[in-house]
Design a protein around this nucleic acid. Structure first.
Length: 407
RNA sequence: GCGCAGGUGGUAGAGUGGUCAAUUACAAGAGACUGUAAAUCUCUCGCCUUCGGGCUACGGGGGUUCGAAUCCCUCCCUGCGCA
């Protein structure tokens, strides 16, 4: 019996939308679901009590960040991620693949024209050929080669190396219910040639991740592993990637990479055609309400995104009519809730006036309350989507929601 | 009353003859944020503008100088000390 299994409860005939249940050693995730990002074993500014209270089902942490701080051994010593952060429900860990991108190619400049194949000597973790000058002169903290990725720590500038095997090793120690294969998240600006090269490499890393995971028998009885589809904004590569990964025996699939709004739909269409129906699909890093509707329609089961907490900390909140900033003076004179009708802790206990004051004053509680509200908003929006699928009124819900919500 | 120090943009506080509409910080205003290098970052922040520039400005007034926030005189105000 696999530690992570998926069953589909209902599929809609007019789209690929579906409702199901992912079972993990720490409980179930009823899908579609929004999993909350808790990078460093904490959902920034929101204690587990509130997560549970608002109906959060799963938390996604990050391998690279926990490896750097406090170190995977500390997490293991504490009894694993769940015990460490006092979150009893399902957890996931991203592999560090996203950091290859965010610390490497970044969103702009110089994508693909460097990242020379730097092959370190043997299985030695010391990146002998790593050229720090080269990396930093391009404003990068990560350089990719066939074997893995060399990072410059953003904490102290020290060099670190990730390979598929290393990512698995760390993720095993962290102990999340669902792990992700080590991948290279590419820039949306990367050329076809580079995307293809990176994708092929990601596939090789996927096989290696799978192998390393299976080799750790104890871990593979407790943790599931998802492969990550790449391919950038190219349909042919997306299809190829999905096909290649579908042939590998993962417990589920993540769809990675960066998308433009237009690309998202096309990419998911292609990818889902190739992925096995009976495995869960996680749309990595997405997102905004309107994107989640697209994802669900295209057959995505779970989502994650930093937006609710990051936006909240920065003073923006979701409402039924769209996003709004709480940093304006006018908000100080509004004694109603942030979003009328919202049942979250922030809205049922504090007026907009007070939360606006906190945010303007730079008080921690402001960002915490806004984060709680935003998480509640998204998590429950996806719960409503799930219910609507089960009750066969997804299209209606989507129409109602989007007619009110301005992007 | 005498002595000393000082009066600069919303605030604090640089500048001490030209490169000053004036460093910087904060406040204020606007924008961004999609697998978290983010409780962060970007822009605006005297008035007007055809965005080339124009105008009014560094307590008030007067003066020196080609040129003054910067030097001189004078007045007003503030703080400290002495009477």
């Amino acid at each position: 019996m696999r530690p992570v299994t998926f069953s589909i409860e209902k599929k809609l005939p007019q789209s690929r939308a579906r409702a199901g249940v992912i079972t993990t050693p720490h409980g179930v995730i009823e899908t579609p679901a929004f999993t909350v990002v808790g990078t460093k074993a904490t959902v920034k500014g929101v204690a587990p009590h509130f997560l549970k209270d608002m109906g959060v089902q799963a938390v996604l942490s990050n391998t690279y960040h926990l490896y750097l701080q406090p170190g995977e051994d500390v997490v293991a010593e504490a009894g694993g991620l769940h015990k460490f952060m006092r979150w009893e429900g399902p957890t996931l860990t991203d592999s560090g693949g996203f950091q290859v991108f965010s610390l490497g190619a970044g969103f702009e400049a110089g994508v693909g024209k460097f990242a020379p194949a730097v092959v370190p000597a043997e299985e030695d973790k010391t990146p002998v050929f790593y050229d720090k000058e080269l990396a930093t002169s391009h404003g990068k903290l990560a350089i990719v080669d066939e074997e893995g990725v060399t990072f410059t720590s953003h904490h102290d500038g020290t060099l670190h190396r990730f390979t598929a095997e290393r990512s698995m090793e760390i993720q095993h120690k962290i102990g999340a219910d669902i792990m992700f294969a080590f991948d290279e998240c590419t820039s949306p600006l990367a050329e076809h040639d580079y995307q293809k090269e990176a994708m092929a490499r990601t596939h090789r890393w996927a096989e290696r991740s799978l192998r390393a995971h299976r080799q750790n028998v104890a871990a593979s009885q407790k943790q599931g592993l998802y492969g990550v589809v790449q391919g950038g904004r190219y349909e042919d590569l997306r299809r190829e990637s999905a096909k290649a990964l579908a042939a590998m025996d993962f417990d589920g699939y993540g769809i990675g990479g960066s998308f433009s709004k237009e690309d998202l739909m096309k990419a998911l269409d292609v990818v889902v055609e190739e992925l096995p129906e009976e495995k869960p699909r996680h749309l990595l890093g997405i997102g905004e309400p309107e994107d989640i509707f697209i994802g669900v329609e295209k057959g995505m089961d779970t989502f994650d995104c930093v937006a609710p907490t990051r936006l909240g900390r920065n003073g923006t909140v979701y409402t039924k009519t769209g996003k709004t900033s709480l940093r304006y003076e006018a908000g100080l004179h509004d004694q109603g809730p942030i979003d009328p009708g919202c049942a979250c802790y922030a809205c049922t206990n504090f007026p907009k006036s007070y939360i606006t004051h906190l945010l303007r004053a730079g008080e921690y509680l402001g960002g915490m309350l806004a984060s709680i509200h935003n998480l509640h908003f998204i998590v429950n929006m996806v719960k409503d989507i799930r219910t609507s699928i089960l009750e066969d009124r997804f299209d209606e819900l989507k129409k109602d929601f989007l007619s009110m919500y301005s992007v």
